[in-house]
Protein backbone atom coordinates (compact mmCIF):
# COMPACT_ATOMS: atom_id res chain seq x y z
CA UNK A 1 0.00 0.00 0.00
CA UNK A 2 1.19 3.50 -0.78
CA UNK A 3 0.76 6.29 1.71
CA UNK A 4 0.46 9.84 0.46
CA UNK A 5 0.05 13.13 2.27
CA UNK A 6 -3.36 13.37 3.78
CA UNK A 7 -4.49 16.42 5.70
CA UNK A 8 -4.17 14.82 9.13
CA UNK A 9 -0.60 13.76 8.40
CA UNK A 10 0.32 17.24 7.20
CA UNK A 11 -0.87 18.92 10.39
CA UNK A 12 0.86 16.26 12.45
CA UNK A 13 4.08 17.05 10.64
CA UNK A 14 3.68 20.79 11.21
CA UNK A 15 3.02 20.27 14.91
CA UNK A 16 6.10 18.10 15.15
CA UNK A 17 8.23 20.76 13.47
CA UNK A 18 6.80 23.45 15.73
CA UNK A 19 7.49 21.54 18.92
CA UNK A 20 11.00 20.88 17.67
CA UNK A 21 11.58 24.61 17.19
CA UNK A 22 10.23 25.25 20.69
CA UNK A 23 12.67 22.75 22.10
CA UNK A 24 15.59 24.24 20.23
CA UNK A 25 14.97 27.62 21.83
CA UNK A 26 14.41 26.28 25.34
CA UNK A 27 17.14 23.73 25.50
CA UNK A 28 18.94 22.69 28.64
CA UNK A 29 22.61 22.41 29.28
CA UNK A 30 25.48 24.27 27.74
CA UNK A 31 25.79 21.92 24.81
CA UNK A 32 25.21 23.88 21.63
CA UNK A 33 22.69 23.09 18.90
CA UNK A 34 23.61 19.92 17.09
CA UNK A 35 27.08 19.41 18.44
CA UNK A 36 28.28 17.60 15.35
CA UNK A 37 30.19 15.29 17.65
CA UNK A 38 29.49 11.57 17.50
CA UNK A 39 27.26 10.29 18.94
CA UNK A 40 24.35 12.72 18.69
CA UNK A 41 22.33 12.72 21.90
CA UNK A 42 18.81 13.44 23.06
CA UNK A 43 18.19 14.47 26.66
CA UNK A 44 14.94 13.78 28.48
CA UNK A 45 14.17 15.29 31.88
CA UNK A 46 11.54 14.45 34.48
CA UNK A 47 12.78 16.99 37.04
CA UNK A 48 14.71 14.44 39.07
CA UNK A 49 16.66 12.38 36.54
CA UNK A 50 18.28 13.38 33.25
CA UNK A 51 17.94 10.63 30.69
CA UNK A 52 20.56 10.81 27.91
CA UNK A 53 19.92 8.63 24.86
CA UNK A 54 22.27 8.04 21.92
CA UNK A 55 22.20 5.74 18.91
CA UNK A 56 25.37 3.63 18.85
CA UNK A 57 24.82 0.61 16.60
CA UNK A 58 27.51 -2.05 16.59
CA UNK A 59 29.83 -0.56 19.18
CA UNK A 60 32.28 -2.98 20.79
CA UNK A 61 30.95 -3.38 24.35
CA UNK A 62 34.45 -3.75 25.79
CA UNK A 63 35.33 -0.26 24.57
CA UNK A 64 32.11 1.46 25.61
CA UNK A 65 32.62 3.68 28.67
CA UNK A 66 30.60 6.28 30.50
CA UNK A 67 32.46 8.53 32.94
CA UNK A 68 31.24 11.25 35.29
CA UNK A 69 33.44 14.24 36.07
CA UNK A 70 31.96 17.19 37.95
CA UNK A 71 28.96 18.35 35.91
CA UNK A 72 30.03 16.44 32.81
CA UNK A 73 29.16 13.03 31.38
CA UNK A 74 31.59 11.58 28.85
CA UNK A 75 30.75 8.71 26.51
CA UNK A 76 33.67 7.00 24.77
CA UNK A 77 34.00 3.89 22.66
CA UNK A 78 34.99 2.45 19.36
CA UNK A 79 33.31 0.86 16.38
CA UNK A 80 35.68 -1.61 14.84
CA UNK A 81 35.90 -2.09 11.08
CA UNK A 82 34.72 -5.37 9.65
CA UNK A 83 37.10 -6.88 7.15
CA UNK A 84 35.74 -10.00 5.51
CA UNK A 85 38.23 -12.14 3.68
CA UNK A 86 38.09 -12.39 -0.08
CA UNK A 87 34.99 -10.28 -0.49
CA UNK A 88 34.28 -7.51 -2.94
CA UNK A 89 32.32 -4.51 -1.67
CA UNK A 90 29.22 -3.26 -3.45
CA UNK A 91 28.50 -0.58 -0.87
CA UNK A 92 30.43 0.72 2.09
CA UNK A 93 28.48 3.36 3.99
CA UNK A 94 28.98 2.32 7.62
CA UNK A 95 31.77 4.29 9.22
CA UNK A 96 34.09 3.08 11.94
CA UNK A 97 36.47 4.63 14.44
CA UNK A 98 36.79 5.85 18.01
CA UNK A 99 34.55 8.48 19.57
CA UNK A 100 34.35 10.67 22.64
CA UNK A 101 31.36 12.85 23.48
CA UNK A 102 31.16 15.11 26.52
CA UNK A 103 27.81 16.45 27.72
CA UNK A 104 27.57 19.16 30.37
CA UNK A 105 24.44 19.08 32.49
CA UNK A 106 23.04 22.26 34.08
CA UNK A 107 22.26 20.80 37.50
CA UNK A 108 24.51 19.19 40.10
CA UNK A 109 24.55 15.42 39.62
CA UNK A 110 24.54 12.54 42.03
CA UNK A 111 27.57 10.83 40.46
CA UNK A 112 27.10 7.61 42.45
CA UNK A 113 23.58 7.17 41.10
CA UNK A 114 24.46 7.31 37.37
CA UNK A 115 23.31 4.23 35.46
CA UNK A 116 24.10 3.22 31.86
CA UNK A 117 22.38 0.61 29.68
CA UNK A 118 23.32 -0.48 26.16
CA UNK A 119 20.55 -2.33 24.35
CA UNK A 120 19.66 -2.85 20.66
CA UNK A 121 22.43 -0.44 19.70
CA UNK A 122 21.00 2.38 21.83
CA UNK A 123 22.80 3.75 24.89
CA UNK A 124 20.75 5.12 27.79
CA UNK A 125 22.46 7.02 30.58
CA UNK A 126 20.35 7.92 33.61
CA UNK A 127 21.76 10.79 35.66
CA UNK A 128 19.98 11.68 38.90
CA UNK A 129 20.18 15.28 40.11
CA UNK A 130 21.89 15.78 43.45
CA UNK A 131 19.48 16.24 46.41
CA UNK A 132 20.14 19.99 46.53
CA UNK A 133 19.36 20.38 42.82
CA UNK A 134 15.94 18.70 42.94
CA UNK A 135 12.88 20.90 42.74
CA UNK A 136 11.48 21.52 46.21
CA UNK A 137 7.96 22.56 47.13
CA UNK A 138 7.87 25.47 49.52
CA UNK A 139 4.84 25.84 51.74
CA UNK A 140 3.42 29.33 51.60
CA UNK A 141 2.78 30.69 55.07
CA UNK A 142 0.49 33.36 56.24
Amino acid sequence: MLYGWDTADLFGELRRMQSEMDRLFHRVGSTTGTSGVFPLANIYDDGEVYHIRAELPGVDRNTLNVTVTGDQITITGERKPEIPEEASYHRRERDHGAFSRAIKLPAVMNADGVKALYKNGVLDVLVPRAEEAKPRKVAVEG
Binding site: E55, L56, P57, G58, E82, P84, E86, A87, S88, Y89, H90, R91, R92, E93, R94, D95, N120, G121, V122
Partner: peptide, 22 residues
Amino acid sequence: PLVDIYETDESLTLVADMPGVT
Protein backbone atom coordinates in the same frame (compact mmCIF):
# COMPACT_ATOMS: atom_id res chain seq x y z
CA PRO B 1 19.77 2.82 7.14
CA LEU B 2 23.48 2.94 6.31
CA VAL B 3 24.64 -0.35 4.83
CA ASP B 4 27.66 -2.35 3.79
CA ILE B 5 27.13 -4.93 1.07
CA TYR B 6 29.79 -7.39 0.11
CA GLU B 7 29.98 -10.45 -2.06
CA THR B 8 31.96 -13.66 -1.90
CA ASP B 9 31.85 -16.68 -4.22
CA GLU B 10 29.16 -18.24 -2.02
CA SER B 11 26.99 -15.37 -0.85
CA LEU B 12 25.96 -11.75 -0.66
CA THR B 13 26.11 -10.17 2.81
CA LEU B 14 24.22 -7.06 3.82
CA VAL B 15 25.06 -5.26 7.06
CA ALA B 16 22.68 -2.47 8.11
CA ASP B 17 22.72 -0.05 11.06
CA MET B 18 19.26 -0.06 12.62
CA PRO B 19 19.62 1.20 16.21
CA GLY B 20 16.58 0.62 18.40
CA VAL B 21 15.11 -2.09 16.17
CA THR B 22 14.27 -5.37 17.90
